[in-house]
């Protein structure tokens, strides 16, 4: 894993048509590690909802770390290979059919020209990441290949689309049949690490206790922008309006209805509701893969130092 967020230059890297989308339900978009530098203009960071699964998918294929992948949500996709390639699929809540075989997630597999690959919804997650050897090529808009539908940046993938990929630098056969064991404990009843946020003092001691001691269910109202949770209302001590300020993926806002909303990848860059806490990087993939109406989450307070140490440990362990 690397921290290099610079976009790959499309210049001089050869690319060609690799797959056609034969069928698609749900929502599929191209995403990379996100669009940085434009939050101050009101452009969300976007990028993968589950950064860990996203990085693992690229890593299985030794792709450059900021490579674009298909993020599939709440549906199924059928791909038709136009040339020989290797595909890796990670995430939660899906399985993969390739020609006549079925593969679990977190593996890479060889795909021959003419074969059909189907990523099928099972249960226990929302998002699958489909990476291709070399990485997908698509126009770079404002330093990133991430799609941001609300802002008209990129567009949703649809049946009939032909996607291009860069020529991999490694021999295809060496990239196939690899697997990765996720170091993140995906679960439908996760305990999410959170760091108290700047307005934690706006809540009563009772409200804070409620937040840390009760369970919250993921409501049906969730998308790439935010996840609404439902549970015991969180009591505020200060009810005045907050002057809008910057926020980020993981920020937990408590609006007037006293129920938490966790900001996700396409969240607005600023907000005016008080924030009680923020979900840490390590815990965001767990929340991202929670199922609406099913999953129950709890919050555990950690310090920023603890959160960063855990994150570094996972990243050092490699993907």
């Amino acid at each position: 894993m690397t921290t290099d967020r610079r976009p790959q230059t499309a210049v001089s890297r050869p690319s060609s048509a690799v797959i056609e989308i034969a069928d698609l339900t749900g929502i599929a978009t191209l995403q990379d590690s996100g669009r940085r530098g434009f939050n101050k203009f009101g452009v969300p960071t976007s990028g993968a909802m589950d950064w860990y699964a996203y990085q693992a998918a690229n890593s299985l294929l030794t792709n450059p770390p900021n490579s674009a992948v298909i993020e599939l949500g709440l549906g199924e996709i059928t791909l038709h290979a136009l040339r020989n390639t290797v595909i890796a699929v990670t995430g939660a809540g899906y399985e993969v059919e390739n020609y006549i075989w079925t593969f679990p997630l977190w593996t890479s597999f060889y795909v021959r020209a003419g074969w059909t690959v189907r990523v099928k919804k099972t249960s226990g997650g929302n998002w699958a990441y489909i990476a291709i050897a070399g990485g997908f090529n698509s126009p770079i808009i404002m330093n990133s290949r991430s799609t941001y539908l609300r802002g008209g940046i990129g567009s949703a993938l649809k049946a009939g689309d032909v996607l291009h990929s860069f020529t991999p630098t490694t021999e295809l056969l060496k990239l196939a049949a690899r697997n990765h064991t996720p170091l993140i404990p995906y679960s439908q009843t996760p305990i999410l690490d959170v760091i108290p946020a700047p307005q934690a003092g706006w809540f009563t001691p009772e409200g804070i206790r409620t937040f840390y001691e009760s369970e919250y269910t993921l409501s049906l109202s969730f998308d790439r922008m935010g996840y609404r949770l439902q549970g015991k209302p969180i009591e505020k001590a200060i009810t005045q309006e907050l002057i809008s300020e910057g926020m980020t993926m993981g920020s937990i806002q408590i609006p007037a209805d006293s129920q938490p909303i966790v900001m996700m990848a396409d969240a607005p860059t600023t907000g005016g509701y008080p924030k009680i806490a923020s979900v840490t990087r390590i815990s965001l993939p767990l929340l991202a893969q929670c199922e609406a109406g099913v999953s129950r989450v709890c919050f555990r307070e950690v310090t920023v130092e603890e959160a960063q140490e855990k994150y570094r440990t996972i990243c050092r362990a490699g993907l």
Binding site: R5, R36, G37, N39, M247, T248, T270, R281, V304
Partner: peptide
């Protein structure tokens, strides 16, 4: 600093915890 988000009376900054600690 990866990027800054100035608002009315606050600045939010984003950084990379892999290369920079909170301290």
């Amino acid at each position: 600093v990866i990027e800054t988000v100035p608002a009315y009376c606050t600045v939010l900054i984003h950084y990379d915890p892999l290369t920079t600690t909170y301290n």
